[in-house]
Amino acid sequence: MRILVMSDTHGDQHTLHRVILSQPNAEVIIHLGDGCDDIEDERYLYPNKMFLQVRGNCDWCSALPPLGEIQLENRKIFYTHGNLHNVKYSLDEIKLAARLQKASILLFGHTHIPYTEYENGLYIMNPGSLRGADASYGIVDITPQGVVTNLIRANHK
Score class of each variant (00 low, 15 high):
94 I>D: 02
2 R>P: 02
31 H>D: 09
143 T>G: 05
67 L>I: 03
40 E>R: 08
121 G>L: 15
122 L>W: 02
50 M>W: 04
136 S>I: 06
19 V>I: 04
64 L>D: 03
37 D>L: 14
156 H>K: 06
64 L>Y: 05
33 G>W: 03
76 K>H: 12
42 E>A: 11
52 L>F: 10
14 H>N: 13
145 Q>N: 10
116 T>F: 07
17 H>E: 07
19 V>L: 02
128 G>C: 13
3 I>W: 00
10 H>C: 11
142 I>T: 05
121 G>Y: 15
26 A>Y: 00
23 Q>E: 03
95 K>V: 14
13 Q>I: 11
65 P>F: 08
150 N>A: 11
47 P>T: 08
7 S>E: 05
123 Y>I: 01
113 I>F: 13
144 P>G: 13
67 L>C: 13
92 D>Q: 15
153 R>K: 15
45 L>V: 02
142 I>R: 02
75 R>T: 03
149 T>L: 14
127 P>I: 05
47 P>H: 11
19 V>C: 07
55 R>C: 06
6 M>L: 15
41 D>N: 12
94 I>T: 06
141 D>C: 07
57 N>D: 15
118 Y>S: 08
59 D>Q: 13
26 A>T: 01
154 A>V: 12
50 M>Y: 04
63 A>I: 13
25 N>T: 14
148 V>H: 10
73 E>D: 15
39 I>Q: 02
65 P>W: 07
21 L>S: 14
11 G>D: 05
65 P>L: 12
94 I>K: 07
130 L>P: 00
122 L>R: 04
71 Q>D: 15
139 I>Q: 06
138 G>S: 09
105 I>L: 10
131 R>K: 15
69 E>K: 12
67 L>S: 07
34 D>I: 02
114 P>T: 09
154 A>F: 04
16 L>P: 00
130 L>E: 04
40 E>F: 07
74 N>V: 04
58 C>F: 08
35 G>P: 05
157 K>G: 12
144 P>M: 11
12 D>F: 01
91 L>Y: 15
42 E>R: 01
140 V>L: 10
72 L>C: 06
100 L>Q: 10
117 E>M: 11
21 L>C: 14
106 L>F: 12
71 Q>C: 08
21 L>I: 05
145 Q>D: 10
42 E>M: 06
15 T>V: 14
156 H>E: 12
73 E>W: 04
42 E>L: 04
56 G>K: 00
136 S>R: 03
126 N>M: 09
113 I>T: 15
14 H>F: 08
